[in-house]
Amino acid sequence: MSFQPVKFYQTGTFTVGNRLLAPQERSVQANMERTNSLNSGHRACQGCGEALGARYAIDAAMHATDNQLIAANATGCLEVFSTPYPETSWQIPWMHSLFGNAPAVATGIAAAIKIKRQKGLKDDVRVVAQGGDGGTTDIGFGCLSGMFERNDDVLYICYDNGGYMNTGVQRSSATPPAARTATTMPVGPQPGNVFGQGKFMPAIAMAHEIPYVATATVADLRDLEHKVKKAMTFRGARYIHILVPCPLGWGSASQDTIKLSRLAKETGMFPVFEAEYGELTNSSKIRRLLPVEEYLRPQKRFAHLFGKSPAVATIARLQALADKNIRKYEMLDKEAN
């Protein structure tokens, strides 16, 4: 048997931190002095994946920019739960304008920074725009595409929880097929969200051939932080799409948020990868391949698939989508399998 490399830290690199790691190898979130860009007291639901993802991403971006960061935020859960007057949870310069314009607002901020730098500003201030899947793939799509196309120096982060959760769980173009939402009820001949619709924004971002596109989940913090930091090494438009489970909208237990994120990747339902200038450069390999049922079952939005007579055909279609992801984004480690 060949030995594992000696650099093995009790629990590998999967935990947030580890006392055995050298400080520079620890995650941002393990740091006692992490920014907590999104601070306590916000009004997100228990177990909110978006609140978690936002702190992960923005803290990492703060780390990468030496705290020289400004954020533009689309309307949505993240905005509503973080900044209801008279309290804000943000500890960074942050701006909310509208639902569909966060990328353009960010363009404006970045342009203003560019001019300020020309006029002598020393700080290399970077700009992040963020929004939910509705604000990104639907109403903000035009502004986002424009920002990509101009290659403005903005990192756009989409927190994808697969629906309009803030308004009461309606379907978005990121809602997965078969999922129950308030506007795709599990009734009629095709219960839940229909197959054959929806869009996968990361692929669209790649089509713009912007410098950097990545997907991530809140289950793999180190990967997420790595991608945010990597994104900050590029100038120009960058896009990171983070899967963030929503206990409310998914009908999942609040403590299962990370578990579901993990299962989304391990079943192939959500591909985790990186792309540069339109080409796939890296994909996170599935560690323990599981059938999609493992991911679907804990979520009430898919409960109609698992009744007395399970919707075998529908589950098979979802499995086929996962299999396609696995092929397309090379999610299996060829050497290991």
């Binding site: 030995f3 000696v6 093995f8 009790q10 935990t15 947030v16 931190g17 916000h42 997100a44 702190r55």
Partner: peptide
């Protein structure tokens, strides 16, 4: 190899300061 083997310990039932709780709390 001894170090490697020691580090395989899961530390069952006792905090080993992996920072997971610190990291995964959505509410800091």
């Amino acid at each position: 190899t001894a170090l490697f083997e020691a580090r395989r310990c899961l530390s069952c039932g006792n905090c080993f300061e992996c920072d997971n709780c610190y990291g995964v709390c959505p509410d800091n």
